[in-house]
Every structure is written in structure tokens, then in C-alpha cells.
């Protein structure tokens, strides 16, 4: 385990410890703890997984297994703005793929990756349930709907 990572993030680990102590005695606490850990750290580095495994007294393989199974857990840091392009059916039949392609072109990154400066992460997401506004993207908590590929550069410019 990298010691420096823990020293650098001492406060965050303390916050995590508090969460674990609170939830430890609940039934099936691992998922809620991982969700909180991701809130605290922004992602789930191996040091954090290790810490959780030790605190819960379960094998690290269990923690890693769960952390890698669910798509919302990330083992890598994400960009400051997370762009999620809804690829639900309603959005897809209304041209979400073209919107995604345009974003990938404008940001010059592939789907699932982060820009070098750490500003944007581009992701294809499952149905966001805003089908009435299809096609839809989300940038952090902001929703943009009824999009055309041509709308993309202007939206991205707002965040630069």
C-alpha cells in the first residue's frame, strides 16, 4: 500500500472511517460504503479498497469484485465535468449516437476517457429517464435535451 497516498489524504480517510463505523453493523454494508467512499474520494483507488477490506475484515477480492462489477464505481479519477450521453432506446432512435460522436470529436477523446487536462470525462450512460427530451446529455447535474450535434460546441464552450 502506498503510504504517501494515505498521508496525503488523511482527512478523507478519517471521513471514510466514520462512514464505515456507522454502517459496519448494518446488513450488507459493502455497497453503501463503496458509494460513500466514491463520494469522498471521487473514485475508488486500490488504497481505499484495501482500507475498506481491512476495516470490514473481509478479503480485498470481495471489495475489488464488487467495485469492478458495477459501472458507477470507477477505479480511475474522473474529470471535473462528467458528460453522460444517454444511450437509452428513445434517445438512440432520435440520434444520440451522432451527438456522442460529435462530443468525442469536439473533445478529441474516446468514449470512456478523460481529457488530458482533467476537465472532461465522456461517458455513454444508460437511460436517464428523460425520454421526453430525447436525445439527452448530462454534464454533472445539468441536463441538456432535444439536442442536435450542432448544439454541442456551444454547450462545451460554457464549461471551458
Amino acid at each position: 500500500m502506498s503510504v504517501s497516498f494515505i498521508e496525503k489524504n488523511k482527512e478523507k480517510f478519517e471521513a471514510l472511517k466514520k462512514v464505515i463505523d456507522e454502517k459496519k453493523s448494518d446488513k450488507g454494508p459493502l455497497m453503501p460504503i463503496l458509494q460513500q467512499a466514491q463520494e469522498i474520494f471521487g473514485y475508488l483507488p486500490i488504497e481505499v479498497q484495501n482500507f475498506i477490506a481491512e476495516e470490514l475484515d473481509i478479503p480485498i477480492t470481495d471489495v475489488y469484485g464488487v467495485a469492478t462489477f458495477y459501472s458507477q464505481f470507477s477505479l480511475k479519477p474522473k474529470g471535473k465535468y462528467r458528460i453522460g450521453v444517454c444511450l437509452g432506446t428513445a434517445c438512440y432512435v432520435k440520434g444520440a449516437q451522432q451527438v456522442l460522436d460529435e462530443l468525442s470529436k469536439v473533445l478529441d477523446i474516446d468514449v470512456g476517457s478523460t481529457t488530458e487536462d482533467g476537465t472532461f470525462t465522456l461517458e455513454a450512460t444508460r437511460c436517464l429517464g428523460a425520454c421526453g427530451l430525447a436525445p439527452v446529455i448530462m454534464i454533472n447535474d445539468d441536463v441538456y435535451g432535444r439536442l442536435e450535434p450542432d448544439d454541442i460546441p456551444e454547450i462545451i464552450a460554457k464549461y471551458k
Binding site: R126, C127, A130
Partner: peptide, 11 residues
Amino acid sequence: DEGDPGAFMDR
């Protein structure tokens, strides 16, 4: 856990 893409009645 409404996973069917395009369904949002449960939500």
C-alpha cells in the same frame, strides 16, 4: 431498478 432503456414509469 428500472433498467429497460426507455421506461420511466417506476421513476
